[in-house]
Design a protein around this nucleic acid. Structure first.
Lengths: 110, 110
DNA sequence: TGGCTGCTTTCCTAAGAGGAAAGTAGCACC
DNA sequence: GGTGCTACTTTCCTCTTAGGAAAGCAGCCA
């Protein structure tokens, strides 16, 4: 398989997080959770996993009273996502290009 | 999540099979197995799964001596794939479009 | 009848995802 | 300074699923 196909990023939960982060800067946890419609625990685990992979960085802030956690893609995370996105586009694109080596089972078929 | 995002098709093993079938007609089992570099058993299971979902049809042929199994996308399989591919493109595209609602943790951060 | 090819099925193990609920850190409030 | 609250985080557990290995099977040839 295409080496830039990133199985780790490919899982839906992770793909949606990273895709949402890609065009943004720091995004807060609650917004992420509500937008991708997941639970605190599921999101927290995925964010840790992404942070562990070096794909996102996490920052805690305190704006008088409210404490929030923000997440941002790291440069490596962005690159990984771009590579994976490119791999996906190649797949989708290849799927549009008729290929040879098709063994048509014709006549004496059953 | 986008309703046309097809989790069943999204798994890499299935995605590669379907993407390979998309531009082709009948493709034979051995070619499929060698191209996507998987095992007989893994491929057989995925093909059954896809057939069970109505996404592919399977045909056995016998050309004097050699017996082969061929697989083809069904119209539903093709549509499902196109929908999923479109969902992927929307994700990748959305990732390029800057989004509002980004909570920037600036100054008093830590 | 036995062997071979080309899948198919079974058996098993291991990974991983997510729900539920308990845990925790920092701050506000009294 | 203890209590509560908010905003996550971690643990525990269960369930699903993928794939390797190997046994099974069907058709055909010799």
């Amino acid at each position: 398989m295409d080496p830039s196909f990133d199985e780790f990023l490919h899982v839906p939960a992770r793909l949606s997080i990273v895709a949402l982060l890609a065009p943004a800067g720091w995004v807060d946890f609650g917004f992420l959770r509500d937008t991708i419609e997941t639970s605190d625990s599921a999101l927290s685990k995925q964010v840790s996993a992404l942070a562990g992979a070096g794909y996102v960085s996490v920052r805690k802030t305190q704006d008088n009273g409210t404490r929030r956690t923000h997440v941002q893609l790291t440069p490596e995370g962005r690159e990984a996502f771009q590579r994976h996105a490119a791999a996906l586009e190649r797949i989708v694109e290849a799927a549009r290009t008729p290929v040879e080596r098709v063994t048509a089972p014709d006549a004496r078929t059953r």
